[in-house]
Amino acid sequence: MSDIPTDLKYTDSHEWIRDDGDGTVTVGITDHAQDALGDLVFVELPEVGKQFAAKDACAVVESVKAASDIYAPLAGEVVEVNRALDSAPETINADPYGEGWIFQLKRSGDDAAQVLLDADAYERVLEDEA
């Protein structure tokens, strides 16, 4: 069974979102996502300063198996990216909710329509997919 921390929010496209409490959120991919993708070998990070609308494709993770888009869970501007992933993409496999974070967004607030899932709702998404 995959790990779904209860203090995070989720999307049905398998991103996790941590509210940093200062108007920014940190984003990564879930334990389920890293497990389904297999060993990660490349991460294309978004550019710092770039604006995204909710659900925009903004990064790419590539595993030994395939490439997969990462979507902005909320609207905002990229304020930081995890440069350590350039040389160690496998960090996402080892620690998807910690050292394997991908980018940080400063929320622009134009995302009222985007509903984030709590841990229980995300678990139901996984059950439905299985």
Binding site: G38, D39, V41, V64, K65, E90, N93
Partner: peptide
Amino acid sequence: PLHYGSQL
């Protein structure tokens, strides 16, 4: 089997 944990 695709892999048994880590393909790498």
